[in-house]
Nucleic acid binder design. Structure first.
Lengths: 173, 173
DNA sequence: CAGTATTTTGAACGACGTTCAATATGTGCT
DNA sequence: AGCACATATTGAACGTCGTTCAAAATACTG
C-alpha cells in the first residue's frame, strides 16, 4: 500500500478511500490482468488453421507469462484470507477465459461430449498453470531441461491426441 | 518468526542462532515436507498391479495435499527473494521425487524413450501441481465442477494413453 | 463569499522480521 | 567448591508494513 501510494503521489491513507484493504486492491488489479490474459488468448484463437490452435493457445499463454511475469504471478499466487471468497465478476472472468478456449478448440475436440470437453480444457489450463508457477518460482528448472513452453505443448497436444475415451485402463481388461 | 518462537517457548532472537532468516527456516521445513511427499509417493508406487500405478500415484499426491494442505502450500508457494537460489539438497530432493515416479511408471511407459519418459513425468507432475494450487487457492472451484483429483486422473491417464509419439499433428500430412 | 461536502493528509497503532549488547546457563579445570 | 571461559538465550530496539482516523485542505453550491 505504501509503495503504491508513493508511486501515484498520494499519502497511504488516500488509497483506503478507493479500496477496503490491500487484498481488495490486488483483486481489482487481478481482474484487469485476467481480462488481458483472456484477450491475449482470444487473439491467438483467431488462427484460421484450426489444427494449429492448440499450440497457438499454448504459445499465447506462455508469451503472456513471459511478458508480464509479475502481473501473472500476482494474479495466481495471491490468496485471500481464510473465509473471504472472490467476487462474482472474478468467477465470470475466469469462466469467460475457459469458455473462450473451449470454443477455440471446438474444431479439434468435436469428438468429445460437451461436458467432458470443458473438463478437459480446465485440466489443460491447470496444467499450463502448474508449469508456469513452477517455472516462475524457479522449481521447474531444477528438474526440467527444456523450456517450460515445451512441457505446455506436451500436455495439451497429448491430451487432445488421447481423445475423449482415453484413460481408465482398468475398464478394459 | 515470532509465532514459531512463541510456539516453542523461546524468544524470537533465539531462532536466529539456528537459521539465518525466515526464508532459511521455511526452506528447511520444505525439505522435510518434500521428503514426506516423496515417501508417500514411493509407498503408493509399490502397488503390485502396475496398470493401477498411475492412478495410485495421483491418489497419493492428492491425499497428501488434502492431509497437509498448509505444509504443501508452503512447500510450493514460498518464493525466495530475487537472486537467491535454492540449496543443492533441495534440487536433489525434487529430482529424487521425479526419479521415483519415473521408476514407478516405467512398466506402463516402456514404449517411451528414456529422455522423453522423464520429460513426460515432469509434465504430469507439473499438471498435478497446477490443479492443486488452483484448488487450494480457491480458483479451480470457480470453473470446475468435479473434485480436483478427477482432473489429476484425467491428465495423467490421457497423457499416458496418448503414447510417446502423440502430439505434433503438423508433422503428419 | 459563506457554508457544506468531499478529498487528502500524516501521525499513530500494532504486528512483523531482524539485530545485538546484556544476561543467563552450561562446561571444564584446579 | 569456586573460577574462567564458551555457549545459549533474552528482550529491547529499529525499520517497515497495513491500517485507522481526527484534522486539514480542497472542491462545490447557493
Amino acid at each position: 500500500m505504501r509503495r503504491v501510494a508513493e508511486r501515484i503521489g498520494y499519502a497511504p491513507g488516500t488509497l483506503y478511500n478507493l479500496f477496503d484493504n490491500l487484498d481488495a486492491l490486488i483483486v481489482t488489479l487481478n481482474g484487469e490482468t485476467l481480462g488481458r490474459l483472456s484477450a491475449a488468448l482470444a487473439a491467438a484463437a483467431t488462427t484460421g488453421d484450426v489444427a494449429a490452435r492448440p499450440s497457438a493457445l499454448v504459445n499465447a499463454y506462455f508469451d503472456f507469462v513471459e511478458a508480464e511475469p509479475q502481473l501473472w504471478a500476482v494474479l495466481f499466487e495471491h490468496r485471500l484470507p481464510e473465509g473471504i471468497s472472490l467476487p462474482d465478476w472474478y468467477r465470470d472472468g475466469l469462466a469467460a477465459l475457459v469458455d473462450g478456449a473451449v470454443a477455440a478448440l471446438e474444431p479439434v475436440m468435436s469428438a468429445w461430449p460437451e461436458a467432458s470437453r470443458r473438463e478437459t480444457v480446465v485440466a489443460m489450463w491447470a496444467g499450463l498453470h502448474g508449469i508456469s508457477t513452477l517455472a516462475v518460482s524457479g522449481k521447474l528448472g531444477l528438474v526440467a531441461t527444456g523450456p517450460p513452453r515445451q512441457l505446455g505443448h506436451l500436455i495439451v497436444e497429448r491430451i487432445i491426441a488421447a481423445g475423449p475415451t482415453a484413460g481408465g485402463s482398468f475398464i478394459m481388461s
